[in-house]
């Protein structure tokens, strides 16, 4: 199976499959496919084993409840339809990569798919966190960074504060939590605080420069 990035503005991933090779993707990302490529579907609940979790995730994060599987032989292309960059990660057996919601483009069917929830700061009005997809190898994964992707390697115990929603991916060894950054001291400073994410190494993280929830292309 071959993954290739095509285009630079709104990039696509071109997947070429032989017989009995499969990729899965969220619904709505297909750009084109050969007629020989067949589609089937499965649900998040079947993949992860939790009906409630899948419904909550679809409702809160607006992530499609269905996953589509494309089977070779043939070629198909997928895109997130927004400006950005695409990365292709080749995961080894047992290697795990955590990717932010609404960022995966497609993955080989040998990749195990799961997700977890990053809690919000529990502050009134900002209680809702976000989901991250957990992908475990072996196999290739393609994901989309909205805007430009910046990479950092964090040493053991090294921390970094990043904008809420700017996290794109992290190695599973990196811990993540949300917190409030106050505007200075005092009650007013705390009242006007804004949410951020703290990530702590060791491991590699990638952040994206465009808000994925922005309504622009």
């Amino acid at each position: 199976m071959d993954f290739k990035v095509a285009g630079n503005l709104v990039p696509s991933v071109l997947v070429t499959m032989d017989m009995n090779e499969h990729v899965f993707s969220e619904g709505g990302l297909l750009v084109y496919k050969d007629v020989s490529v067949h589609t089937s579907y499965t649900t998040l609940s079947k993949v992860t084993g939790s009906v409630t979790g899948a419904i909550v995730r679809s409702t809160l994060a607006k992530i499609p409840f269905y996953l589509l599987t494309y089977s070779g032989p043939g070629s198909c292309a997928f895109s997130r339809s927004t400006v950005g960059e695409v990365r292709i990660a080749e995961l080894k057996e047992g290697e795990t990569l955590d990717i932010a919601e609404n960022s995966i483009i497609c993955a080989e069917s040998s990749v195990k798919y799961d997700y977890f929830y990053v809690h919000g700061t529990t502050r009134v009005g900002r209680m809702i966190g976000f989901f991250m997809d957990k992908l475990t190898g072996p196999g290739k994964v393609a994901y989309h960074g909205h805007g430009t992707i910046l990479s950092f390697n964090l040493a053991e115990g090294e921390s970094m504060s990043i904008d809420y929603g700017a996290i794109l991916s992290k190695e599973s060894s990196v811990t993540i939590k949300t917190y409030n950054i106050p505007y200075g001291g005092g009650l007013l400073g705390h009242a006007m605080s804004f949410e951020a994410i703290e990530v702590t190494g060791p491991g590699k993280i990638e952040i994206e420069t465009k808000d994925p929830k922005a309504k622009t292309l």
């Binding site: 084109y32 490529v37 339809s81």
Partner: peptide, 22 residues
Amino acid sequence: AFGNAFQFNLNPGEVLDVPVNN
């Protein structure tokens, strides 16, 4: 185009599936 454009020159009988928005 919206984003990048890809051109296909189909021969007689060649077929492609394209989501209508693309």
